[in-house]
Design a protein around this nucleic acid. Structure first.
Lengths: 108, 108
DNA sequence: TAGTTGTGCAACCGATTGGTTGCAAATATA
DNA sequence: TATATTTGCAACCAATCGGTTGCACAACTA
């Protein structure tokens, strides 16, 4: 059972769950109510998100509240940043080129 | 056939392929040679990466060179940035707290 | 021309995924 | 206490995934 952050955020439903609980913790039923799949299906997604640390489930009476732990996304952020310089330097080159061909001195 | 960037980078082999070709384009066999799965398996990963725009395949004679298009990761970067403020403000709060309890004026 | 190399793809396979229904158990409420 | 609510989980299912072998074909090379 591979369980890493990259695999967890690959599913659009899981990304939406994360978005739902990021400003206020919600109990399992509240989360499940926003989707048209079964509660069990949503519960499984919550479990996967919890297993890889993207959210924390806290019991309160008979309810369990899902609290987002977005700091785990730092792993993804750092991975993407590795490549950022590649596309940013390409954009810089494009910008420089556009500036060059508009340079008035070229019309001399 | 769902084919988005999030799903594409979920697989560790595909992330490694992307890393391999990011500084120099490599042909299909060269990429496949670095893994101990079959060429066909690697080829399928390349196809998925190409389909979602993370790399481009350019024919040159009988060879096909895989060129990384990391700018497509911008989509992931933007999604993660949505949440960055959540964990950064938590870290700020922690830092502020640590600074507060070390404040000399508290010893007065 | 004959052989080698690089590639695309069909066909198949077991494991995983995302979904379902149904039931049991714990907690709240009448 | 009887009933309703919230949850966890087992059992099952079809589709997808990541892998395989085998073959066809185009393009270099001897």
């Amino acid at each position: 059972m591979r369980r890493d952050v990259f695999q967890a955020i690959a599913d659009p439903t899981r990304r939406e769950i994360l978005h739902m609980v990021c400003d206020k913790p919600l109990n399992v039923n509240a989360v499940a109510g926003h989707f048209d799949v079964s509660r069990t299906a949503v519960y499984k997604h919550i479990k996967i998100l919890a297993e890889c640390g993207l959210l924390e489930v806290k019991q309160k009476g008979r309810e369990r509240f899902c609290e987002a732990k977005p700091e785990k996304l730092n792993e993804v952020s750092k991975w993407v940043d590795q490549y950022k310089r590649f596309w940013e330097q390409k954009l810089d080159a494009l910008e420089a080129y556009l500036q060059l061909i508009q340079e008035p001195s070229n019309n001399k």
